[in-house]
């Protein structure tokens, strides 16, 4: 067992671009569910809008990268409006069904042979990140960077790491500002009881829509980071698993807490890497015999843990790490 490698991987993954992507997705979900009470189970679709918006604009229409970013944002807003218009007037669980359906629709379109010319089919798209990195990245794009136990494969990864955390900082600040304002008060009121808020003269539908767009845009930022950090977009990266991970992260950290998704993402990816790397190491060095677990099955164990974690957290510690059990016990929807 190479514990040095395992621990270094754990620390690196806890703050790496992948953790940043899921953190941003979870910040968006936190706006949706934690603050507004909207059951969005299609967060992956918002990330896909960002990623594909950027990739398609740059590779198929030869637009500059910054215009691709704008296209991604616009697509996200359009998707949020499309999802919100039919569902936000309805019972909460309809939104869950429609968002999960929409995310599947987006993924099926993206990987379809019919739209292969534009969307790349199941291979996805790459080659769109060069202009972004070559025009902005101050680091050496080929050289690996190592800071103590933290390791970055090359300058692009280090650059995305810095940009990603800056985005998280900005997103968290905006969420914090919004949620302590009168706007946030209405939003939190809707989470508690939307009829009460309606009876006080607030246009609940409009606020729910604003929250859906706001959280979707935050998720879309995660999509940009995902696309740029991988230098490619692949439809199956935006499957419902992404959404479930983001939910787990949000609940783990503590819903309706600004720091929740950040803490949740770091702990989640740290723990997951720790378990997966330990298991891989153990199977590779035959500490765990192949008859019990093969190396290629470690990924499946990872998903089982996510499912189990989501269940157990929701049952035994629904308030997460930062939440307050007393406050949760007051939940009017219980």
């Amino acid at each position: 067992m190479d514990w040095g490698f395992i621990l270094s991987q754990t620390l690196t993954q806890a703050i790496a671009p992948i953790a940043i992507v899921y953190c941003l997705a979870a910040i968006g979900l936190n706006v949706h569910f934690g603050y507004t009470g909207l059951l969005n189970f299609g967060q992956a679709a918002f990330l896909a809008m960002g990623a594909y918006g950027l990739a398609v604009s740059v590779t198929r229409f030869n637009l500059p990268w910054w215009l691709g970013i704008i296209v991604g944002l616009v697509l996200t807003v359009i998707l949020a409006l499309l999802l919100g218009i039919p569902t936000l007037r309805l019972r909460a669980d309809y939104l869950a069904i429609v968002t999960i359906a929409a995310a599947e629709i987006v993924r099926l379109f993206a990987r379809s042979v019919t739209f292969r010319e534009t969307l790349g089919g199941s291979d996805g798209i790459n080659g769109f990140s060069t202009s972004f990195f070559s025009s902005l990245n101050p680091f050496n794009r080929q050289q690996p960077y190592t800071f103590g136990p933290i390791h970055f494969a090359n300058g692009d990864v280090l650059f995305m790491f810095l940009i990603g955390w800056a985005l998280i900082a900005i997103a968290s600040l905006v969420v914090w500002l919004a949620m302590r304002s009168p706007w946030g008060r209405v939003i939190k009121g809707i989470r508690e009881d939307e009829d009460a808020v309606r009876s006080l003269g607030k246009n609940v539908y409009s606020y729910k829509m604003q929250a859906l767009v706001f959280g979707g845009v935050l998720g879309c930022l995660g999509g940009f980071v995902f696309a740029l950090a991988n230098a490619s977009v692949q439809p199956d990266n935006y499957a419902s698993d992404l959404t479930y991970f983001a939910w787990l992260i949000m609940i783990l950290g503590g819903a309706a807490r600004v720091g929740g998704p950040i803490l949740g993402a770091m702990i989640f990816w740290g723990l997951l890497t720790l378990v997966v790397e330990t298991l891989k190491n153990a199977t590779a060095s035959a500490i765990i015999p192949e008859s019990i677990l093969r190396t290629d099955q470690v990924g499946q164990i990872q998903f089982m843990l996510v499912g189990l974690g989501l269940m157990l957290l929701m049952i035994f510690r629904p308030q997460g790490i930062l939440g307050d059990k007393k406050e949760l016990a007051l939940d009017a929807r219980r």
Binding site: G37, L39, F41, A92, D93, A96, D241, Y244, W247, L248, I251, F303, M304, V306, G307, L308, G309, L310, M311, L312, M314, I315, P318, R333, R334
Partner: peptide
Amino acid sequence: IAMLVVSIGLGVF
């Protein structure tokens, strides 16, 4: 809603 999330976790598992 908590039960809905539990069922999603159970499904993934």
